[in-house]
Amino acid sequence: MSEQRPAVQLDHPTLPLVKEAFSTVPLQATQFRNQTTLIVPSQHLHDIMRFLCADPRCDYDFLSDVTAVDYLGYPAKTQGRFAVVYLLASYKHNRRLTVKTFLDPTIDTTGIDVDPALEVESVTDIWPGCEWREREVYDMFGIRFTNHPDLRRILMWRDYPAHPLRKDYPLRGRGERESYRVIDREES
């Protein structure tokens, strides 16, 4: 534990551009195996994403994935329990960038109640292809995307009473898989 961690070399060419354009926003960045992650506050996420897409020096024209992480029980300290992760790619500059934003729930996470703290502005107006990705994040983690055109569950059925990829949800569920009508000989 006494050995120094090597200083992170942040040489991604997009980072100075974002820093210049959003000088008042607290930004963080980290690099691991030549993969750069930019950590942004959730309320500024949409503006930064629009900048990353529209600015010709960034030109991230492809959002390859939107996903989320639940850091419940994570050994290191994180800025929030949930992280929404955006994987960006630029065909023009042949670059990739990961953008991450942290969210912390304010209410009990076992149900499906609306938590205003678990909301991010949707980026479907920038990359329309992320509509289903955001629906999946909503379905699995209960993170709601404002201004999303059609925010419904995509994998679980409509009346599912939980968000199953949250770490406090048991793997075998809470009996949802057992409670369904039974067809027997009489009614078939």
Binding site: L155, M156, P170, R172, R177, E178, R181, I183
Partner: peptide, 15 residues
């Protein structure tokens, strides 16, 4: 597939 989304035997729901 002992998970929340998988039926644990179809005989629970059909003969």
């Amino acid at each position: 597939f002992d998970t929340y989304a998988t039926v644990q035997g179809v005989d629970q729901f059909i003969p």
